[in-house]
């Protein structure tokens, strides 16, 4: 499985003119495993949602190498979903088969068996008929991983996959992540635990509205870079001037 690289060219995403992230350029190599790290409000979630195509960049370009929409697996922050929704686990996991089954086709027995397998692979054997309302936060996250497993996407974007989850669940889900990495899938994950990033993720993108560092994890996560990321102002400056980095190319164009 060799996905195309994801290439960003001067990407800016803004809310009401204030940049959530701006002037991002870089490349996620095929099969790379990158942690996205940065303080709260650094634009990490915005960045992922733009990468998956849910938000449109205000300027700049993202080249996904012609990947079909379903070929990018996206794990939203667990808080973004209604966990009291009256569905059994198997049906949530089965959503991962949308690209294969589409809106209408019935699932074959073989596909149903794959749902069971995926649930077992994330440690939810025997949970198929359990309503999701009865799951703990960790079990719910396992279920979303099962959905991703079934989606079988060559590119995976994970938003805080290990937040509010105990160490055993994290270890189990990391095993799934390593398996994906071994299969050559591209993985991008927003994370807060720097220990875990140093231990598991070869590459890191340190984000604070702009790229502070992007490269091998030991070189990106230096004390100096982390300090620079922390200096990012969280508050919007209502009197901010238009971003100067935009003017240079404009002048050149003129």
């Amino acid at each position: 499985m060799t996905p195309p690289p994801l290439v960003l060219d001067n990407v800016t995403v803004a809310y009401a003119r204030h940049p959530a992230v701006h002037h991002l350029s870089g490349r996620f190599a095929p099969g790379s495993m990158t942690a996205v790290v940065g303080p709260n409000g650094a634009g990490k979630t915005t960045f992922l949602r733009t990468l998956v195509g849910e938000l449109q960049p205000e300027s700049g370009r993202i080249d996904r190498g012609g990947l079909a929409p379903g070929a990018i697996g996206y794990l939203p922050q667990a808080a973004a979903l209604d966990r009291s929704f009256p569905l059994p686990c198997a049906e949530v996991a089965a959503m991962g088969m949308w690209a294969a089954a589409g809106p209408f086709r019935a699932l074959s027995p073989a596909e149903r068996a794959r749902i069971e397998e995926a649930l077992s692979a994330v440690g939810l054997r025997g949970f198929a008929a359990r309503p999701i309302a009865t799951l703990s936060a960790g079990q719910f996250q396992r279920l979303l991983f099962a959905r991703l497993l079934l989606q079988d996407a060559p590119v995976l974007l994970l938003d805080e996959p290990f937040t509010a989850i105990d160490s055993r669940t994290t270890a189990d889900l990391l095993r799934v992540l390593r398996r994906w990495h071994g299969e050559g899938r591209t993985i991008v994950a927003v994370l807060h635990d720097l220990e875990l990033v140093r231990a598991e993720f070869p590459d890191t993108l340190l984000l604070a509205r702009e790229v502070i560092a992007w490269g091998r994890t030991p070189e990106a996560l230096t004390a100096e870079n982390l300090f620079r990321a922390r200096l990012m102002a969280e508050a919007w400056d209502e009197t901010a001037e238009p971003c100067r980095q935009d003017e240079a190319p404009r002048r050149r164009a003129a």
Partner: peptide, 17 residues
């Protein structure tokens, strides 16, 4: 099927085209 998915996780369905 699409209605259930759209109701539970609209972002997922959008991401899947």
């Amino acid at each position: 099927r699409p209605l259930v998915i759209e109701t539970f996780d609209a972002g997922f369905l959008r991401a899947q085209g």
